[in-house]
Amino acid sequence: MSAVAQEPAVVLDRIHKQFGDLVVVRDVSLTVARGEVVAIIGPSGSGKSTLLRCINLLERADSGRVEVVGRAVEPGAGVAGRDLAALRRSVGMVFQSFNLFPHMTVLRNVSLPQERVLGRSRAEADARSRQLLERVGLAAKADTYPSRCSGGQQQRVAIARALALDPEVMLFDEPTSALDPELGLEVLAVMRELAADGMTMVVVTHEIHFAADVADRVVVMADGAVLEEGTPEQVLRSPSTERARRFLSAVVDR
């Protein structure tokens, strides 16, 4: 990890989130430095996706504080529109189900948010979009519709769409879970490059190899709490809790 970081990119301070009586995230605190890549792993239902979604306020934590590049909000106490807009602008997100806009071409998918959110002109936005599509290896797909792209291609477009808003932090919510293993690889390749370029990334994933190779830090969650946290070597090779050991043996020895 590059230790140049001044203020952290993301600070989650005692985040608590429940749906009805079900506590999904239990007082979790997590700090992500600038340029750091954090992988969150854990069994289904462990609250890892919910925690991720608490960062960009797709889920509003019931209590706790969320701070992104120095701007703090307390979702439980209400969020001002201006804070929400600023936060969403500095955080990009990639979903498991891609969520491209199916009625627009690939190029429009990447350009529309730039025009609506950053006020770029159509020409500026398209230029930036083409540059990013080139970067994710999809320049040739600019004028096709998402339905004509493979899942892996759609996910790479979704990454380009998020990057087009020049975010400071990128969130990935199981970006390869809906993909064939081979198609997943092309998405992981793009993510590797992004990490190498110094992007701050928080990745919820089941891809243990990606976590081992790319992440600076691995966080293991279960039952809404953080079980383990450390470098990939520490956490993946010698987990200290029995629960983490059980989960890891299930994914690593597969």
Partner: peptide, 29 residues
């Protein structure tokens, strides 16, 4: 799909913008 609202929202698009540009055209179809 609810993911369409979420994606637009995560991209920082406002509610009206999302309805007009993203959701309504699909609902129309």
């Amino acid at each position: 799909h609810a993911g369409q609202w979420e994606a637009a929202s995560a991209l920082g698009m406002g509610g009206t913008d999302t309805l007009v540009r993203v959701v309504a055209p699909q609902a129309f179809r």
